[in-house]
Simulated scan of single mutants.
Amino acid sequence: MAKKNQKKTKSKIVSAAWKLFYEQGYEDTTIEEIIEESGTSKGSFYHYFEGKDALLGSLAYMMDEKYEELEPTISEDADCYEVLLYLNRELLTMIEESINVELLTRLYSTQLTTHGERPLLDHGRTYYKLLKKIISRGREKKELRTDMSVSEMVRYYAMCERALLYEWCLRKGEYSLSEEAERKFPMMIGSLK
């Protein structure tokens, strides 16, 4: 039970931080405001995060929460290629509606320059586990190609998704991310079939 409460506390901090970052901007959001918005304590905040910059990497875990929310909605019988498109559409819609493009840009830049932990590449995340499960099932059902390993296909999917996000950041969010993905992502991952 304690582990579940810890995850809930961390999740509350992350959700509050990203809400405030979106509304006020990263620079204009203080740790005190995050603590107040999350209804947690200063001790809890510093238990999970060294400071505000450490929250940038938490976007990966926010994405995982979205996948955890979506997983129960996926039917075992659903076409796996269509499930991959669904997951991408839902995630990118969530990002477009709740993540400031400047913040996403900052996250990507820190992932490129950091020498330590890089949460976007952590294969222990729900994101990678769910993709592996769906792609494995797709291969078993002969809906997805079998001449590439599951790991290669997961990596390719993640690379395509990051390409959409990176381009959106480069263009400073000048177009709808979800609409662009709706048009381009099927072409990008079509080779998985």
Rank of each mutant, 00 (worst) to 15 (best):
T110N: 05
L165E: 14
H47S: 15
Y108H: 13
E167N: 11
S44D: 15
R89N: 14
T113N: 11
S98Q: 14
L144N: 03
R183V: 13
T9D: 04
M187L: 13
P186E: 01
L59E: 00
R139E: 14
Q24C: 07
S15E: 15
V154W: 03
L165N: 05
L84I: 06
M94H: 04
A17R: 03
F185V: 01
L84Y: 09
E37W: 00
R89Q: 14
R89D: 15
L112F: 11
D64I: 02
T93I: 07
K193W: 10
K8A: 12
E33D: 14
I95R: 03
T93Q: 09
R139L: 02
L164D: 04
Y127V: 00
V101A: 03
E180I: 05
R171T: 06
K8H: 02
E180M: 12
R125C: 12
H115P: 01
Q24V: 01
T9Q: 13
K184Q: 12
A163C: 10
R183F: 11
G173C: 02
H47Q: 10
E180P: 00
A16W: 05
E180Y: 14
R183G: 02
H47A: 10
I189K: 03
E167A: 09
D122V: 00
A60P: 01
E50L: 13
T113Q: 06
L170I: 11
Y156G: 00
M63L: 14
E96W: 05
L170M: 14
H123C: 04
D147V: 06
E96T: 11
A2D: 11
Y67S: 12
E27C: 06
I34S: 03
S191E: 10
Y128K: 13
L87D: 08
V83A: 06
Y128E: 01
L130V: 13
L164G: 07
I134S: 05
R125N: 15
E71F: 07
Y26N: 11
Y81L: 10
I13V: 06
S136C: 07
D53G: 03
K42R: 15
R171I: 10
C169W: 08
L91Q: 13
Y26H: 05
V150S: 08
Y108V: 10
W168D: 00
K7M: 10
F185P: 03
K129C: 04
R106Y: 12
V154Q: 04
D147F: 09
I13F: 00
Y127D: 02
A181I: 09
I135T: 01
G57A: 11
M153D: 00
R145I: 13
L104K: 07
M148D: 02
I189Y: 01
E37H: 09
D122I: 00
M153F: 06
D122A: 04
E69K: 12
L70N: 02
G124N: 15
D79P: 05
D28W: 02
Y46S: 04
S41V: 05
S15I: 07
N5K: 08
G116S: 12
E71L: 08
R162I: 08
R118H: 13
